[in-house]
Amino acid sequence: METLSINKLVKTFKDGNKEETILKGIDLELSQGEITALIGASGSGKSTLLTVVAGLQKSTKGKIIFEDRELTEMNPTQLRAVRAKRFGFVFQHAHLVQFLTVQEQLQLMVDTAELNWSKKKREEEIKSVLQAVDMWSHKDSYPDNLSGGEKQRVAIARAIIHQPSMLFADEPTASLDSKRSIEVIELLRSLSKERNHTVLMVTHDTDMLKYADRTVIMKDGVISES
C-alpha cells in the first residue's frame, strides 16, 4: 500500500535572471512501512527532494500525494499541520532545544502535534519511547550533557513520539562516528519496523544502505536507479 506518491516533481531555484533546476521530473512511490534510502553525489538533488516532499520547500511543478491528499496544493498552514501531526524528522544534527530536558523535548512535540492525550497517557508514551531509544535514564538531562549519539537518539524519540506515518531522515548519522552511526541506524530501523513508519532517508554513506529496504540513486536531478 502506497503512503506517498511523487509524480513528475520539478524544483527550480531562481537567482536573479539565473535559473537552476535541481529536481527534473521525479517519479517515486513509497510504501507503508518501507525504508527507502536516497543516495547520490553531492548536488544530485537528494536533500532537495527530501525537503520538498516533507513540505519544507515548495515544488515548482508536479504532484506529491500523501495519504490521498495532495501536499502540493496545500497552503503553508495546512502543510505545517501535516508536518506536526503526520511527519517525523531526524536531521544530520539533533537540533534539540537547549533549555529543555530530554523528557520535555518530547512533551513539546506532543503539544506541537496537538494530541489530546491525558496526562497519564502522555507520561506512558514518553516513557515507552525513551525506553525504546534507551534514554529513559537520561530523561532529566539537558542536551549539553549528552553525547552526539545520545542526542541523536533523543532526536529519533522526538520524531516518533507523536506516532507519525512518515519519517524523514536527512543524513541522520553524518555527524557521528562509525560505531554510533550503526547504533543510531539500527535503532531507526528497528523502531520504524516495530511502529510501521514509512521512512525516506537521505545518506551519502553506502554502509547505511543495508539497513534500507530499498535504495534510490539520484544523479543530476533525476532518479537513475531504483
Binding site: R83, V97, L108, A113, R158
Partner: peptide, 16 residues
C-alpha cells in the same frame, strides 16, 4: 533563529 527554524520544521506554529 536556528531553534525557531527547527521548531517550525517539526510543525510548531509561529504564533506559539
Amino acid at each position: 533563529l536556528g531553534t525557531y527554524g527547527i521548531l517550525k520544521a517539526v510543525g510548531m506554529k509561529t504564533s506559539a
